[in-house]
Design a protein around this nucleic acid. Structure first.
Length: 268
DNA sequence: TAGTATGTTGGCGC
DNA sequence: AGCGCCAACATACT
């Protein structure tokens, strides 16, 4: 599930659960997609967690860091019961507060790395990431210049983590619909007002999802009984909430995008 | 059973 | 060089 907002929530939760506390032991019930030596974590105090695009970074005392990516289905939760399925990494903590935090990842697309803090910024997964749309640094001008003016489809640029870091397949549908810009549009054809709408839509989408998904355990849309919180994603065949048109779907780069054929015209 | 899934990498052809 | 497309990774759910 995780796109930028879910990873941001995970970062805040992990910080609240573990900052200032000592890791007694680290267990890796499933070593898939884990690099480094888990035993290096024992005895280290957690200084902080932060988010970089869709990555989580924990800084530990002594210049060690944990880098974590949630893949498609990963989430960190506190005090997972031992019988909880799909636990891939478990950090056991000392003192008051949750006794463990666990990476739960049914589909096992997530990754965890143990590395030196000094090597985080140059890690191959992080070194080429584009600007983060939630960082205070990025504004409309920076957003537009990051995406650029080529012939490439808007969706491709927004999905490319080297262009802008953190947006995912859901965000692309939501941003396009909110901004009333078709995902197939060549970036060079997008006008100033549309750029302004795209940037506002990006911020509004991210802030909206941060609000609705805030909590200790993120609910996947695919899980039984989960309500679709999105304005457009997953709503093929439902009426657009701005006009009577039924929302449609298209595939680009192997991923489905939902859109309104009336509000989001294919040609400028 | 087949189809689908919120991510990323790497190969191929253009 | 950069893109579109595809397959791969591994699993759960409908």
């Amino acid at each position: 599930m995780p796109e930028l907002p879910e990873v941001e929530i995970a970062s805040r939760n992990l910080s609240a659960w573990t900052a200032g506390r000592v890791i007694v032991a680290a267990r890796t019930p499933d070593l898939a997609r884990f690099e480094g030596d888990a035993s290096d974590l024992a005895g280290r105090r957690v200084n902080s967690w932060r988010r970089v695009g869709k990555y989580l970074v924990a800084e530990l005392e002594g210049g060690l860091a944990v880098l974590s990516h949630l893949g498609m289905t990963g989430q960190w939760i506190a005090d997972a019961p031992p019988e909880r399925a799909h636990q891939r990494v478990v950090l056991v903590l000392e003192g008051a507060g949750p006794q463990t935090v666990s990476l739960i990842d049914p589909r096992r697309f997530g990754w965890t790395w143990i590395l030196r803090s000094a090597d985080v910024a140059s890690h191959p997964r992080l070194v080429d990431l584009g600007p983060d749309p939630l960082s205070g640094d990025l504004d409309l001008e920076g957003f537009q210049s990051a995406i650029g003016q080529g012939k490439t489809a808007l969706k491709s640029r927004l999905m490319n983590q080297r262009v802008i870091a953190g947006l995912g397949n859901i965000a692309i549908s939501e941003i396009g619909w909110r901004a009333r810009v078709h995902p197939h549009r060549a970036c060079e054809s997008i006008g100033p007002e549309e750029w302004a709408r795209l940037w506002s839509a990006t911020r509004e989408h991210l802030e909206y999802v941060l609000e609705v998904e805030d909590g200790e355990e993120i609910e996947y849309q695919s899980s039984a009984g989960a309500k679709n919180p999105f304005v457009c994603y997953g709503r093929e065949g439902e009426p657009c909430s701005r006009c009577p048109t039924l929302l449609d779907r298209l595939t680009l780069a192997g991923r489905v995008t939902f859109y309104c054929p009336t509000c989001q015209e294919e040609a400028p």
